[in-house]
């Protein structure tokens, strides 16, 4: 039984009128996995998440969550999911603690259990000292942590996080990542969407890259980088010269060269060697950065576009 996927989708489609948001995707998420959807805005990530969270029904295709059919067993499935939506919808009329205890009641959790669970979760997301406060004065990071606590109030089998750190400052993001990492270590199955490649790399065991409603690649962050990129990337900037004009002179340097509006990316197994070759050809870039390849490079290679505009 443990081998049965928690989420199983075949040919999943979501259309809104004429617009196709999700265009036939296949998925399988195993228990204990941290699974990510990586893609730019409008790739269909959130629509997919809403279908998985059994709020929106698929237009076509097959979807099984926890082995059940959302169109028939939506209520039962939702009772075993924890959802952290992209936009905070915490209850501004209630205190921090009441946001958790009230939410627990929607799952039919007894009051006493809800209170105990709320205290544990407030400790876990480091908001115990704000328990009596209203939601409004909390910072963005605190609100998001509270939303994650709320998503866990029913001790869910899967926690769904739609862009958990979008709009947060770096410090708040790192605190949140650390908490999510704790969840992952406890064996909680996490499904998240993000358009931050560093988030995907840090948190996801496996991910799919989405673009235009389709899955364009999938695998672990490492295998995606190995498959679609080179170990290292050299970023070259040429002051006033346009990258496209320099492109011709870089023929044969590294494995591949991608011109961006403001810089050139040279994909190479050995960045320093590639840089040496650039200089040997008499080129004088105004700046050179040798770095490891990231999922951003994978995405650029797969779609020809950057993740964050």
């Amino acid at each position: 039984m443990s081998e049965q996927p928690l989420i199983y989708a075949r040919g999943l489609v979501k259309r809104f009128g004429e617009f196709t948001a999700v265009d036939g995707i296949d998925l399988e998420v195993a228990p204990g996995e941290a699974f990510g959807f990586l893609g730019p805005n409008g790739a269909g990530k959130s629509s997919t998440m809403r279908m998985i969270s059994c709020v929106s029904l698929p237009t076509a295709g097959e979807l099984r969550i926890l082995g059940m059919d959302p169109s028939r067993d939506g209520t039962t499935i939702r009772g075993r999911l924890g959802v952290c939506p992209q936009l905070d919808n915490l209850d501004p009329d209630l205190s921090v603690r009441e946001n958790l205890t009230t939410y627990a009641r929607y799952f039919g959790i007894p009051r006493a259990v809800a209170r105990r669970r709320a205290e544990e979760l407030l400790d876990f997301v480091q908001l115990a000292d704000r328990a009596g406060s209203k939601v409004e004065p909390l910072s963005g990071g605190m609100k998001r942590r509270l939303t994650i606590a709320r998503a866990m109030v029913n001790d869910p089998d899967i926690v769904l996080l739609d862009e958990p750190t979008t709009g947060l400052d770096p410090q708040a993001r790192h605190l949140l990542w650390e908490r999510l990492f704790q969840l992952k270590r406890r064996g909680t199955t996490l499904v998240l969407t993000t358009h931050y490649m560093d988030e995907a790399e840090q948190l996801c065991d496996r991910l799919v890259v989405m673009d235009g409603g389709r899955i364009v690649a999938q695998g672990s962050p490492r295998s995606l980088i190995e498959t679609y990129s080179t170990p290292e990337v050299v970023e070259l900037r040429f002051g006033d010269e346009r990258p496209a004009d320099v492109l011709g002179k870089l023929d044969g340097v590294g494995e591949r060269v991608d011109p961006l509006p403001d810089r050139l990316l040279v994909y190479a197994a050995d960045g320093d060697a590639a840089t040496a070759e650039v200089h040997r050809r008499g080129l004088t870039p105004s700046s050179v950065l040798v770095r490891r390849s990231t999922l951003e490079d994978v995405f650029l290679h797969l779609t020809g576009r950057t993740l964050v505009d």
Binding site: R78, N89, D91, P92, Y103
Partner: peptide
């Protein structure tokens, strides 16, 4: 505006 019902509809409540 408060999206209270969105939050509730993510639970078993219909």
């Amino acid at each position: 505006y408060q999206k209270t019902f969105d939050a509730i509809l993510a639970t078993p409540v219909r």
